[in-house]
């Protein structure tokens, strides 16, 4: 939303009457759906689908740190249970989705939202502490 405003404000300065400003922002709703889908896949034991929703760097880190294929390692992760979206903040190619039991970070890769970190706990004046994240 803010990115959309940024463009519209810039367009205002440019004196350009742009239509379609609303289509240029990151898709907040899709980010929330991807975060929920990731948790659903992990909860039902579908490691393949959960890994398909992971961004490459996080998938690689998970495999290297556990010495197991992603499909197996992701199911061994003790992520908190979460089913519903509470809040989404999306800027540029990154998003933070607050679910009813977890906080998930996502980035746009391969043309869609992919999970970069999950099992995240807020820390004041520091990055979230995430049980699953890439480097």
């Amino acid at each position: 939303m803010t990115r959309r405003l940024a463009w519209c404000a810039t367009a205002l300065v440019l004196g350009v009457n742009l239509s379609g400003c609303s289509s240029l922002g990151p898709d907040d709703e899709a980010a929330g759906e991807a975060a929920v889908a990731f948790h659903e896949a992990q909860r039902r034991g579908d490691g393949g689908s959960a890994c398909d929703l992971l961004i490459e760097t996080t998938r690689t880190d998970l495999e290297q740190s556990t010495d197991q294929p992603c499909e197996t390692a992701i199911l061994a992760e003790s992520l908190p249970s979460a089913e519903q979206v509470v809040d989404v903040a999306a800027y540029g190619r990154n998003a933070r989705v607050i679910l009813d039991g977890d906080v998930v970070f996502l980035s746009v890769a391969e043309g869609r939202w992919q999970v970069s970190a999950a099992g995240c706990v807020f820390q004041a004046n520091a990055p979230y502490d995430c049980s699953l994240s890439g480097s």
């Binding site: 540029g92 990154n94 979230y128």
Partner: peptide, 13 residues
Amino acid sequence: SAFNAEQLAELQE
């Protein structure tokens, strides 16, 4: 917006 994109990339609020 640009600042927050960086914040989120670094897992920050």
